[in-house]
Write a protein that binds this DNA or RNA. Structure first.
Length: 288
DNA sequence: CATATGTCCTGAGAGC
DNA sequence: TGCTCTCAGGACATAT
C-alpha cells in the first residue's frame, strides 16, 4: 500500500525519464475491469503525446508527471496525476504480470524508454490536468493538506490539534495532512509512545513535538529503505525490486509479538475507523 | 462545519 | 482437492 515513502521511492526511480518525449500512450489490453482515467483515454492520449517530460513531483501519496509541449517550453505544463492507492506501482522495466498493466508511455530521448503503470486491484486512478490552474483546483491546498515532510511542527499541531478524533484516525485524513497512511501511522505513534486512541485535543505540547519528530524520522528512514514491501509482495520500486523497510516495522502486522522495547508488552491489533491499528499497551498509554 | 460510514477492487489465505 | 468466505486500506460519495 503505497504511502509517502513508497511514492517518493517511485518518484525518484522515474528520474531516468526526465527530458524524454512521450511518443506513444498505450492502454494495454487487460482482462480485468478498467481503472478510472479522467477525462478519458482519448484526451489522456492527446494531452500527453509529443510532450516532453519536465520532471516528477509528489504530493502526499500522489505522483505527478509534468509534461511540456515539445517545442514550446513556455506553454502551460500539463500534469498527469498517478494515484497508486492500494496496489498501484510504476516501473521503467518490468511489472509483476501483463494482466494488470494499466498504462504504458513510450519515451524517446531519455535514459529510459518507457513508463509502466501497473495495478492489480485497480483502485488506482490516472488524471490529466491541462494546466496549473485546473490542477490546483483539484489537488491544491483547498482540497489536500500539506505534504507530511513539508509541514512545520506549528502547522502540524494547528491542522490536527483541535480535533476530537483519535490521533491515529486523524493522521490518515489527507485533507489535513498528506502522505501518512495506515502502516506508518501505527509506526510513528509507537516511536512517540502515544496511544492511538488518544483524542487529538488531549495531546500535550510535548506529545505533539514527539509525534512530529517521530513522523519525520519514520518517513525519512522508510524512504532510505525504499519503502515497505508487505507479504503480498505487491509494492516494488521503479526497477521492480522490493523495499526494505518492512524488516524495520516495530508494530505493524506484528500482533502477538513482543514490543521491540524490552519488558514492555505484547503488540495488540485493534480496529479504528475500519482500519487495523497496532500498538503496544505497555509503552503507549492513554494518559500522558 | 466536523465526523462517521459504505463502496469500490482483486487475490491470498482460512476454513470446511 | 476445491469451493466459499473474509480481509487488506487507498480516496471519495453520502449520511448524520
Amino acid at each position: 500500500m503505497p504511502e509517502l515513502p513508497e511514492v517518493e521511492t517511485m518518484r525518484r526511480g522515474l528520474a531516468p525519464l526526465v527530458g524524454g518525449v512521450i511518443t506513444a500512450v498505450e492502454k494495454p489490453r487487460c482482462g480485468c475491469r478498467p481503472i478510472s482515467v479522467r477525462p478519458g483515454w482519448p484526451r489522456l492520449k492527446s494531452g500527453l503525446l509529443r510532450r516532453r517530460i519536465r520532471g516528477f513531483e509528489r504530493r502526499g501519496k500522489r505522483l505527478i508527471l509534468l509534461a511540456e509541449p515539445e517545442d514550446q517550453p513556455a506553454a502551460p505544463l500539463a500534469r498527469l496525476v498517478i494515484e497508486p492507492r492500494m496496489t498501484g506501482l510504476v516501473s521503467l522495466d518490468d511489472v509483476p504480470d501483463r494482466q494488470h498493466l494499466r498504462l504504458r508511455l513510450a519515451v524517446q530521448g531519455a535514459k529510459a524508454d518507457q513508463l509502466l503503470f501497473w495495478d492489480r486491484r485497480g483502485l488506482g486512478t490516472l488524471r490529466l490536468f491541462a494546466d496549473e490552474v485546473t490542477f490546483e483546483a483539484a489537488l491544491g491546498r483547498q482540497r489536500i493538506g500539506p505534504d507530511a515532510l513539508e509541514c512545520s511542527l506549528a502547522d502540524f499541531r494547528e491542522l490536527l490539534g483541535s480535533s476530537r478524533r483519535a490521533i491515529k484516525v486523524a493522521l490518515l485524513d489527507q485533507a489535513k495532512l498528506a502522505g501518512v497512511g495506515n502502516l506508518y501511522a501505527s509506526e510513528m505513534l509507537h516511536v512517540s509512545r502515544i496511544h492511538p486512541a488518544t483524542a487529538c485535543c488531549e495531546l500535550t505540547a510535548g506529545q505533539w513535538r514527539k509525534l512530529y519528530a517521530a513522523m519525520r524520522d519514520v518517513l525519512e528512514t522508510a524512504i532510505r529503505y525504499e519503502g515497505s514491501t508487505l507479504s503480498d509482495g505487491t509494492y516494488r520500486n521503479a526497477l521492480n525490486q522490493a523495499g526494505g523497510y518492512q524488516n524495520q516495522h516495530r508494530v505493524y502486522d506484528r500482533a502477538g509479538e513482543n514490543c521491540p522495547r524490552r519488558n514492555c508488552g505484547q503488540i495488540l491489533r485493534i480496529v479504528q475507523a475500519q482500519r487495523a491499528t497496532f500498538y503496544c499497551p505497555g509503552c503507549q498509554k492513554l494518559r500522558a
